[in-house]
Amino acid sequence: MSSALRLLRRRILVPDIGETKLKKRGFQEKDAASAQLLETVGEYFLTGYAHAVESRTPAEAETRLEEVPARFRGFAYEGAGMGFAVLDGMTFSGLRRVKTFLGGRGGRHNYMVYVGVGWAMARLPRFLWPRSESLDPLLLWLVHDGYGFHQAYFHTERYVHRQAREDRFSWPAGQDAYAARAIDQGVGRALWFVGGTDVDRVVQLVERFPEARRADLYGGVGLAATYAGGADESELRELCDRAGAHRPQLAQGSAFAAEARIRAGLLFPHTESAAQVLCDTTAERAAEISRETRPTGTEPGPSPAYEVWRRRIADTFVFHGGVAS
């Protein structure tokens, strides 16, 4: 494909960066530093998306992705995952580009790439969605997380303020109940952005949802607070206190984020600090817990292996006056 055609493809497919501005989205602005952080995350997500849709091959995109500042590189890989999934859907090629990407450097960012596939599904008509059987049966639920984040981020009134829920997602077939829960985990992650990393505002948003949905929402909040950052230790301690009975789920999300960053070699002080508060242990130990509890095959019972995994992690963090075992 010529450079002119690749540039045209970028102009057609890549959203305007103005769509990521907090004022445009109507999100909370806690302070200038937090607003800049969240907008920079959005900027580099779109950078990664653009690299994917205008590159001739995933390998070419990887070279450019590695030039993104390390703190934001994971978000760029997430955007690239979306970009490749959109191209795969539009060309009826299954997930050929996505799988090639995961077979290269994208494999270190596999959690983020799967989330990016969910973003793509939120933008593609259903007949272009990939077959669920083509994805890792454990990680495919991260696709729902990405879908939920997208819907809460871009359709905030419906999914956040009116608490709409995807009760008939039917992907994979027959898994509607858990699909709705996995989508809620992405909605929870988006609440960290909608609330502008302001703990009081984020908790208020969570508490507007029915109690039955809050555990999954807090899991998403913990993941975003740890992976993206934006809150200091005192704010994170307030988050722990206000999560109450859902603190183990908050820690589970934090452990997932620590593992995602460490796997990619992108551990930063904000992730270490968040793990210390939300998990009451180091980021490395939180990541180890995530790896140690990961299912190795199909788990017996009604819950998907992914939910068994999340529950094992949450159960590890038994809090007694702020101390985890």
Score class of each variant (00 low, 15 high):
A231E: 12
L135R: 04
S132V: 01
E288G: 04
K24N: 05
M90R: 15
A324T: 12
A231W: 04
P295H: 05
G230D: 05
V160M: 14
H51Q: 13
E67A: 15
A190I: 05
V113Y: 01
Y159G: 02
M1D: 01
R9K: 13
T63I: 14
T282W: 12
Y227F: 15
A76R: 03
F256V: 01
K24G: 03
S134G: 03
G253W: 00
S132E: 03
A324N: 13
E19M: 10
T316D: 14
R168Y: 04
G265A: 00
H246M: 11
S273T: 11
G322K: 05
A164M: 12
E78L: 00
L13V: 12
V277L: 07
P210I: 11
H155Y: 11
A305K: 04
R189Y: 10
H246T: 07
E67M: 08
F169M: 12
Q252R: 15
T271Y: 07
T20G: 01
P295S: 03
D184E: 09
R237W: 10
D216G: 10
R165M: 09
T40F: 02
A33D: 15
A122G: 08
G83K: 03
K99C: 11
E284C: 06
E39I: 03
K99I: 06
D200L: 11
E29R: 12
F72Y: 11
L138H: 14
T91F: 04
E307H: 08
A245S: 13
V194R: 02
I262H: 00
A177N: 10
A212T: 06
A35D: 11
G253R: 00
Q175V: 03
F45Q: 01
V277Q: 09
H109F: 00
P302A: 13
G74M: 00
L236I: 12
M90L: 15
V41F: 14
E292R: 15
R310V: 07
T296M: 07
L135P: 01
S234I: 04
T47K: 02
Q36L: 13
G301V: 05
R6I: 09
E238N: 14
R294G: 08
A32G: 05
A215F: 01
W129E: 00
P172C: 09
P300L: 02
P210D: 13
A164F: 10
L38V: 07
G103A: 09
T156C: 04
D176T: 09
V115M: 02
Y218D: 00
R11F: 13
A324P: 11
Y178K: 08
E39Q: 14
D232Q: 12
L266A: 09
F45D: 01
S273R: 13
G230A: 12
M112G: 05
C240Q: 09
A224C: 06
W309Y: 07
A152G: 05
V308I: 13
D200V: 03
S2D: 09
R56L: 07
